[in-house]
Amino acid sequence: MAQDPSSPDRNPFEVLGLQGTEELPAIRKAFLAIAARSHPDRLRMKSPEEKAQALELFLGAKKAFEVLSQPDKRREWAERLARARSLPPPPIPRTPPGPVVPPPIPRTPLGPVAIPRTPLGPVTLPPEAASAPPRPAFTPVHGVPVTSPPRPGTAPAPASRGLPVTPPPRTGPLPAAAALQLYKLGLLALESADYAKALDLFAKASRLSPSPRHQSMELVARGHQYLSTRFFDRARESFERALQLLPECREARLGLELLDKQSGRYLKGR
């Protein structure tokens, strides 16, 4: 409840809305501001209750101004206000909280749980496992790897490390048959004037089966390749080397005849 402004126990600085450190000019200014709002001559249109409250406020401000107009009283009330403000506020009584009790958790009784069991029949082993002999227990000694004996019906394990392993027998065509097949393909490429392909096929056949026939045909294909690019000297050298390897090489002789014709035409044209 608010204290009465006209009460002698109330600090006049608080009545005028001051801080307690103001001098007389500031005190007079605060009093005139309150008087301008609450003087009875300015409250003609107000109700009787409002007029009574304003009159009480005006009388309290007037009495506070009269007290603070005296230097001794002003100093005394300023010190009292300063002491009142320096005091700590009274402690607020607190009630200790009671213990927190959690709500009970409802529990439903659990009945016995029946686990279904199925009867186990006799265990039958496969015929291989029943007929196989028991495997002995092996333990490695001094870092030597131990291999278990092979099971019946399985392929033998490969040889251990450090021992030579023989490769399986080769099942592809023999080198002579493969070389013959490459030679026939080279003849077809030579007839179709695909000299690069023919040279590659004859070279492979010569590597598989280094016979004079294969080597001479490789030189013939090389000579035709030189002839197609007008390297007449190199073409002649290839054809002549083919005749040295195989004198009965008909392809080399035909290549020399073709070389003479093309070189003659080229010289006439120049």
Rank of each mutant, 00 (worst) to 15 (best):
A84M: 05
V15M: 00
L258R: 14
E191H: 09
A205M: 01
L201E: 07
A155G: 06
F232V: 02
G264E: 12
D72N: 12
V144D: 07
L81Y: 10
P126V: 08
E251M: 04
A242M: 03
S7L: 04
A159S: 14
E49D: 10
F232P: 04
L57H: 06
K261D: 15
P126E: 13
L256M: 09
R107I: 09
D260Y: 09
S86F: 09
E79A: 14
K29Y: 07
P175T: 01
G17M: 08
A196E: 14
R207P: 00
L55R: 12
E79M: 07
P136A: 13
N11C: 04
P150C: 02
A33S: 14
T21G: 14
S211K: 10
S216W: 00
P91E: 10
K73L: 15
K62P: 01
P173G: 03
A205T: 06
D41K: 13
P149G: 04
E66C: 08
R236N: 11
R250N: 10
E257Y: 08
L208A: 00
E191L: 05
A221P: 03
I105M: 08
I92M: 11
A84L: 12
K197F: 00
Q70V: 11
K63E: 15
D4H: 07
F31T: 04
E76S: 13
H224K: 07
L55P: 03
S238P: 03
K46Q: 15
S6D: 08
L182A: 04
P104Q: 13
P48H: 05
P99S: 09
F65N: 03
L267P: 00
L199R: 12
L208V: 00
M1T: 14
T171R: 13
A137I: 11
L125D: 10
Q244I: 11
K268V: 13
P158V: 02
P48Y: 01
S192C: 03
M217K: 03
R270E: 12
V141N: 13
T229Y: 05
V141C: 06
H142I: 03
P12M: 02
P90M: 04
A54C: 07
E56P: 03
S209M: 11
D200F: 01
G143R: 08
